[in-house]
């Protein structure tokens, strides 16, 4: 789940300065579940904008996630009349949803939300960040707990010296990721994984912007752009000549 938070109303009004007629778009998936872009939030936003003297010319809740361009395009087409009256669109979704809409309409499109993280949803009140989309998942070796995300320093080979009573030095309310990992590996009978020295991470896998075009798969050369190559991670034996010549 993508976690978003609504921007303060003041900021939203500042963004909309100079615009009279606003069209609102929500998102039926993440932002609905997390309460930052569902029907209730669309209604509240409409009321708040009207109270501030704006005209709300229409609202749209796509049938699929707003970031799915296929349905969002169709549904925006169906809202053509309302959209023609709008001089701005405000999207209550994540950054991807907002950009999807922005590319489909002719008027300025603005975010109502800040996009925060990719989370596990523990309840409708609690979510915690679980994945930073690093492109080279290590969960198999870390007991299903992500050190890239949960360790404040993203350490790959065990904890720094800073934890205290199992809590991270950076935020005493959060568990040290590596204490959790060690304990979990112990429970799973996989302690030996803790002793493996992990090589420096291949951050080219996280080089953005990333793009995948499955149509190109099987063709010669790279099937993807932005480093999502399916190549194995370089072990010590494969290191030689890696990226030789370098990049410009």
């Amino acid at each position: 789940m993508i976690i978003t938070e609504q921007k303060p109303l003041d900021e939203i009004l500042a963004i909309l300065e100079g615009h009279e007629s606003v069209f609102l778009v929500g998102c039926p998936i993440c932002a609905t579940t997390w309460g930052t872009g569902g029907e209730p939030q669309l209604r509240q936003m409409k009321a708040a904008l009207e109270a501030a003297g704006k005209r709300c010319v229409g609202t749209l809740m796509p049938e699929e996630s707003t970031c799915d361009q296929r349905t969002t395009r169709l549904m925006l087409r169906r809202s053509k009349e309302a959209l023609e009256q709008a001089d701005a669109v405000l999207v209550l979704a994540c950054g991807a949803g907002t950009q999807t809409v922005a590319a489909l309409v002719d008027v300025p499109t603005y975010p109502a939300n800040n996009t925060l993280y990719l989370a596990r949803l523990q309840s409708l009140m609690v979510s915690d960040e679980r994945c930073r989309l690093c492109g080279e998942c290590v969960l198999a070796e870390t007991g299903g707990i992500c050190p890239v995300t949960l360790c404040a320093k993203g350490l790959a080979n065990g904890p720094c010296g800073g934890y205290r009573d199992g809590k991270c030095e950076v935020d005493g309310t959060q568990d040290c990721a590596w204490v959790l990992i060690y304990r979990r590996l112990h429970e799973l009978g996989q302690e030996e994984r803790f002793q493996v020295i992990r090589e420096p991470k291949d951050w080219s896998k996280a080089r953005h912007p990333r793009l995948i075009d499955k149509r190109l798969e099987g063709e010669k050369g790279e099937s993807t752009k932005g480093g999502a190559q399916p190549a194995p991670s370089p072990g010590p034996s494969q290191r030689e000549g890696k990226r030789k010549g370098g990049e410009a």
């Binding site: 320093k153 720094c160 030789k244």
Partner: peptide, 28 residues
């Protein structure tokens, strides 16, 4: 923003390879 591109253990290993194998991290 902190970096932590590598961690301390990887740094130890990197210096060791630089010293003993005369290789950069990239293998050159």
């Amino acid at each position: 923003k902190n970096v932590h591109d590598i961690d301390s253990i990887q740094l130890v290993q990197m210096v060791k390879r630089m010293r003993d194998e005369r290789k950069f991290d990239c293998g050159e």
